[in-house]
């Protein structure tokens, strides 16, 4: 948690946001059936689906005001001004922000892009094969290069997903998008290996990278086996690798 007086500055922002949410909740609530009969239930005010939303909206507005007043009384305005001033001086692509991007970009692209269009196993390797080495190596320069490259790769997949081109490509060759993902994984691997060669702590990094790779390739294997074949959960997209597993599974069984 942040320091107390700084916190009051942020409280001003959050309480205003909560206030707006409260108002929105109320506006929506008053458009719900309040008096007319709906679905065979004779509506009075106390039956309306709007009853609790109104209570929630009003309470949220009241509490938001209390938090706002408390913040203003305790030096929130001053703190807010200071944080704005500090914000103006900071760089967008600072090491800290690159770190944040390195957490979020793979997570967001896994959930919103890859799970649906890339084979489950490959999607997970694409996630872990980036996230684990990027943080385990703890080198700001390697991380920065990897993030730029990964961002570019994800952009391609995003375009495939949005334009529905992935569906068209998969029709051409059943595992087209999976192959693209595999090539992306390999390119990322090459990038890491080259960067590690260039770096000063070559030996340490090489050893760490090996561990990271074992982790990124083997754990998804276990996850697929446990979830797909033991818990029998159909995976979001079963492509090249999962189908290969299934074939082996049905042969062995």
């Amino acid at each position: 948690m942040i320091h107390d007086s700084k916190l009051r500055g942020k409280d001003i922002v959050t309480s205003i946001l909560f206030f707006i949410l409260g108002v929105y909740i109320l506006i929506e609530a008053f458009q719900m059936p309040l008096k007319d009969t709906y679905a065979g239930v004779v509506s009075k005010w106390y039956v309306s689906p709007a009853l609790l939303p109104i209570i929630i909206g009003v309470s949220m507005i009241l509490i938001a005001v209390v938090i706002l007043l408390h913040a203003v009384k305790n030096g929130g305005v001053q703190a807010l001004k200071e944080s704005f001033a500090a914000l103006r001086g900071s760089k967008v692509l600072s090491d800290g922000n690159i770190r944040y991007a390195a957490v979020l970009i793979p997570l967001l692209s896994l959930v919103y892009i890859n799970l649906r269009i890339v084979d489950f196993y490959l999607a997970i390797v694409l996630y872990l094969g980036f996230t684990i080495p990027v943080f385990y190596l703890e080198s700001d320069s390697i991380r920065r290069k990897a993030v730029y490259f990964y961002f570019f790769e994800m952009l391609i997949l995003l375009v495939l997903r949005i334009t529905k081109l992935s569906v068209v490509l998969d029709r051409v060759f059943y595992y087209f998008v999976d192959s693209i993902a595999l090539i992306m994984i390999i390119l990322l691997l090459v990038l890491f290996i080259r960067e590690i060669k260039k770096s000063e702590q070559r030996e340490l990094y090489r050893q760490k990278f090996r561990q990271a790779m074992v982790m990124s390739w083997v754990t998804p294997l276990f996850i697929v086996i446990i979830f797909r074949y033991m818990l029998r959960v159909p995976l979001p997209k079963e492509g090249a690798v999962v189908n290969l597993f299934s074939m082996i599974y049905y042969l062995v069984r």
């Binding site: 059943y174 595992y175 999976d178 192959s179 595999l182 090249a240 189908n243 290969l244 074939m247």
Partner: peptide, 9 residues
């Protein structure tokens, strides 16, 4: 991998 892919079709 490509062989495996074709195989798993």
């Amino acid at each position: 991998v490509v062989a495996a892919l074709a195989f798993a079709a």
